[in-house]
């Protein structure tokens, strides 16, 4: 099957000062699939993810070389507007980061930035995306409460809803379940599986079993190099590279 990819990485190199963290990565992330990035700690998974929506730019002393294409446009070109790029990619971080405001305002944050003021329209959006994240039934009676009162698992789903509300095409997740209990993790995983029909999903995880459950495609990073990339069935079951095999069997971690 021939996969289309709206998100492509070409010859990406990232340096923290002298430290060469990502080495010449080229990767096409298939549309409407879940691509899982695995690799030992410190190999550059987070860095790769953050280079995709240019969050790396926020740090000082980071140098990025190479190109990242979104729908054929290189997002690292000068003149590209970062806020629009970021709006097109939702981000789920390791720990849920709810904004210091109510549940409702968290979801409405993005649409409001884009200039949406109409209350009824906002109400509809909030409901729609809370449903999409599987949170609506739990919070519909307490939308005006501070979001920080939710449980951690609920907070992560709220972050998902909030990210979806800006209508991104891509969802980026950096170990989004690592702070959650097993039940909440399952819950988030289910939502992600439901969402892949309409979104391109890129996920970093440390948990191989989670990778097996979710991945359509797997990328294995090792010391900043992309060792292997391919369909999950191939990479996770019969890897070509010995380092991938060693990682999957737990010899290196």
């Amino acid at each position: 099957m021939n996969q289309t990819s709206r998100l492509r990485v070409e010859n990406l190199n990232v340096f923290y000062g002298q430290n060469h963290v990502l080495k010449n990565i080229s990767l096409s992330l298939p549309d409407n699939r879940i691509t899982v990035i695995i690799g030992p700690s410190g190999c550059g998974k987070t860095t790769l993810l953050r280079s995709l929506n240019r969050l790396l730019d926020e740090q000082e002393g980071v140098r990025v070389e190479g190109r990242v294409f979104l729908d054929g446009q290189d997002i690292y070109q000068p003149g590209v507007d970062i806020t629009l790029v970021r709006k097109r990619m939702g981000l789920l971080s390791q720990k849920p980061q709810v904004l210091p405001m109510s549940i409702y305002d968290n979801v409405a944050f993005g649409p409001r930035l884009l200039g949406l003021r109409d209350r009824r329209h906002l109400d509809d959006l909030v409901e729609k995306y809370l449903r999409l994240a599987g949170l609506w039934e739990e919070v519909k009676g307490r939308l005006q409460e501070p979001a920080s009162r939710l449980s951690i698992g609920q907070q992560q789903r709220l972050c998902l809803a909030r990210g979806l509300a800006v209508e991104p095409e891509v969802i980026l997740g950096d170990e989004p379940t690592s702070a959650l209990d097993p039940q909440s993790s399952r819950n988030v995983e289910t939502q992600l599986l439901n969402l892949k029909e309409n979104y391109t999903i890129v996920l970093v995880t440390h948990i191989l079993r989670q990778a097996r459950r979710l991945a359509d495609y797997v990328a294995f990073l090792y010391f900043g190099e992309l060792i292997e990339f391919g369909p999950a069935s191939e990479v996770l079951i019969s890897p070509r590279d010995s380092r991938t095999r060693a990682y999957i069997t737990g010899e290196i971690s």
Binding site: D81, T83, L84, L113, L114, G115
Partner: peptide
């Protein structure tokens, strides 16, 4: 286009 215009104002 509306978003573009608003974005210019935000910037």
């Amino acid at each position: 286009r509306g978003i573009q215009r608003k974005l210019r104002k935000r910037l």
